[in-house]
């Protein structure tokens, strides 16, 4: 277990990631100073302006020197560098348990989530984790403490795929926990009603959250590499379909491409970062590719 846990935070991956700081694209609220600029005026070291005192303001922020000159109460306002509050939202529905070769999408998603959590905590961001299938199953609120990482990793460790997907519902549910703007990282195969998923993502953008979507697909889901006619049974609803892979491969690939393209395009239009990841892709490569893209977006 310890071994596996360490696998999530592979030093080689971390070494690579440590050179590329994950930065939030937009300014988010936070309490901890960090690399990210906050749009809010808070109580930090860098003075911004004075504001006339109003009842309820803490008296410790009153600038007595100004009071001496003006005979009026003014409080000091500071421009602070705040840390990012990240929510990693990991799909654990039955379809995430599919594997053609190597690791399941859920395993891949867990490694990715762990890496991201580690990375974000390293740059003094607070990070939380929510896992969902039809609805949110587990929720770890974002924290910055080092012990918080092990909490997340432990949760990731015991994940198993279970029920059908309900991305829309889960995202809506998460919205209740994210009162402040932050970074929403969705790791899912997105095999749900495409319109509803996109609407939910747009909702987060509407709430001024930064949204990153890691779209995980197994190579077999993308290529349909089977040769013989076979019955394919849907992992979520148990429906069986007689499939002639050789015959439909081209058409299937075009359907999948259309599916992915629609996500990509819609996300682009909504200013959502979308990253399609094949589970064969090395984790660090996928993470690196993501970080590179984040850098470009700055």
């Amino acid at each position: 277990m310890e071994e596996t846990k360490r696998g999530y935070i592979d030093p080689l991956i971390v070494a690579k990631l440590s050179t590329m700081l994950l930065r939030a694209r937009f300014v988010v609220e936070g309490f901890i100073a960090g690399l990210h600029q906050s749009p809010y005026r808070g109580f930090s070291l860098e003075f911004a302006q004075h504001r006339e005192y109003s009842p309820g303001d803490e008296t410790r922020h009153v600038d007595w020197k100004v009071y001496g000159r003006k005979d009026k109460y003014f409080v000091k306002q500071y421009q602070e560098e705040t840390n990012l509050k990240g929510y990693i939202l990991l799909d654990r529905s039955a379809s995430m348990g599919y594997v053609s070769k190597g690791i399941t999408k859920l395993q891949y998603g867990s490694y990715l989530a762990a890496s991201l959590a580690y990375l974000m905590l390293r740059q003094q961001d607070s990070v939380g984790l929510a896992t969902f299938d039809e609805k949110i199953k587990t929720y770890i609120p974002p924290r910055q403490s080092k012990g918080h990482l092990s909490l997340i990793l432990n949760e990731l460790e015991k994940l198993v795929s279970s029920s059908p997907t309900g991305i829309n519902r889960s995202l809506r549910e998460l919205g209740q926990y994210t009162k402040r703007r932050g970074l929403i990282i969705l790791i899912s195969d997105l095999l749900d009603d495409q319109e509803k998923v996109l609407n939910a993502l747009k909702y987060f953008r509407f709430k001024k959250h930064e949204v990153i979507v890691f779209h995980l697909l197994d190579p077999a889901e993308m290529e349909l590499p089977f040769n013989n006619v076979l019955w394919l049974e849907d992992m979520e609803n148990g429906k069986r379909v007689l499939t002639h892979p050789v015959i439909i491969r081209d058409k299937y690939k075009s359907v999948i491409k259309e599916f992915v393209e629609k996500y990509k395009l819609s996300c682009l239009r909504s200013d959502i970062d979308y990253c399609l990841i094949n589970t064969k892709t090395p984790l660090d490569f996928a993470l690196g590719a993501y970080l590179a893209r984040r850098k470009m977006l700055r």
């Binding site: 095999l191 013989n228 019955w231 394919l232 049974e233 992992m235 979520e236 002639h244 439909i248 359907v255």
Partner: peptide, 19 residues
């Protein structure tokens, strides 16, 4: 034909309809 599990047969059905 053997039976094999697949994440979602939705796209299989879409592709199979006319082809």
């Amino acid at each position: 034909p053997v039976t094999s599990q697949f994440s979602s047969v939705r796209f299989i059905q879409l592709a199979s309809t006319t082809v």
